[in-house]
Write a protein that binds this DNA or RNA. Structure first.
Lengths: 216, 216
DNA sequence: TTTGCGTTTAACAATTTTGTTAAACAAAAA
DNA sequence: TTTTTGTTTAACAAAATTGTTAAACGCAAA
């Protein structure tokens, strides 16, 4: 017996890195095989076809990301802490896979039929998950009136756009990869301030809060 | 003699539509030819190669967009009117070419070498064009402190993201193309409110202002 | 040892896509 | 009319890419 699980996992990992980390949106099966140091036919042995493999990768990765977001938005945290967490998670996720959204978007444009399949999986829109809390904030005069849809689009835009436009922004401002990472991390607070016009609470404080309320 | 100019322009126009409007990011030369109703070899006759054609299209379109943005940011308008114009223009441009940024981003990821060429064309960063006015606003306490870079990234993100994520957002919220256009147009005001926490001035008012000041 | 099973490979076939070329064509100039 | 110039086409060649298959390989059980 060879090393089935390891090789299959290795190929997946390398393909993910190629697509989502390095941004080779249209890497060929040969390039994936090279990256994993295996024969090209193995791609077909494990994943049947290139198409099939892509679907698998997208499915898995999207599901994981959605899970994370969902967990945050359905948590019992107060609104502003929830959003702070959301920003933190989304930006960090982007730092791990700088080209993920890029890839998804290109792929979706390529296969509009598949989009419905992917999107229909989540029954509840994330905008619905914050509707009530957002309405409270607005009613309390703590934030200017805005629809949940626009609020979520704003939030996603501010978090995701700098990653989508990574190459362009990085070149314009002459930033190295390290400098760009720093820029993104510091932007977390900028985003929070843009949305709420106040300083973002420390994440450690949020964690503490969560521990305390869980005890009670 | 045939009809050189018309055919060449036709091919360009159809290619632009295919890439930037319909979102066929990797349309083949055959598909472009079909769209324009001409023989595939004509693409090579006029544009030498597919690569060369893409470079040409990107070059032209990017230049035009940059020109528009530059004109707004270097105008003599007061800061907030300037930004209102910026938002209006960027969103409208996006409505004309919903997949333009998408295409640029994919293409840039594909050819990181070309990026420098495109970006180096504009000697002045747009963030530098608003630096002084932004500092005034901040000094006057009219807006929370923020770097020009982050301000511009925020602005671009809020304007461009909904177009980049068009397919996804449209599917999630079950919107037709018409409904999505409406959503985007209405978002202009949402974006302005998100940035400045006040209502956006009417564009007609801005035009009036510009006329008046020009007279003096 | 040899048999069996899952894994891996090399070689092949089919398809798609790009780029080239020579010839047909249309209209203006000689 | 004939020539010339520029435009358009069809047919061909070359390259890249995907998917298939049969054989080799390695390890564990018989």
């Amino acid at each position: 017996m060879g090393e089935e699980v390891q090789t299959e996992a290795l190929i997946k990992e390398k393909a993910r890195a190629l697509f989502f980390k390095k941004g080779f949106l249209d890497a060929t099966t040969q390039e994936i095989a090279d990256e994993a140091g295996v024969n090209r036919a193995l791609i077909h042995y494990y994943f049947r076809s290139r198409e099939h493999m892509l679907e698998m990768l997208l499915d898995e990765t999207l599901l994981e990301k959605k899970e994370r977001v969902r967990n945050i938005l359905t948590s019992s945290l107060p609104f502003r802490m929830k959003i702070a967490r959301f920003i933190d998670t989304l930006v960090d996720y982007g730092l791990t896979y700088p080209y993920l959204d890029n890839f998804i978007i290109s792929e979706m444009a390529r296969r509009p039929d598949k989009v419905k399949l992917f999107c229909s999986q989540d029954k509840i829109k994330s905008s619905d998950l914050i509707r009530e809390q957002l309405e409270e904030e607005i009613a309390g005069g703590k934030i200017a009136p805005i629809s949940p849809e626009n609020f979520m689009v704003n939030l996603s835009a501010l978090c995701n756009y700098p990653l989508l436009a990574k190459v362009v922004l990085q070149t314009i401002h002459g930033m190295t990869d390290v400098a760009y990472r720093k820029f993104l991390v510091e932007r977390k607070q900028v985003i929070y301030r843009t949305i709420f016009n106040e300083e973002m609470p420390e994440l450690t404080a949020i964690n503490e809060f969560q521990k305390t309320t869980r005890k009670n």
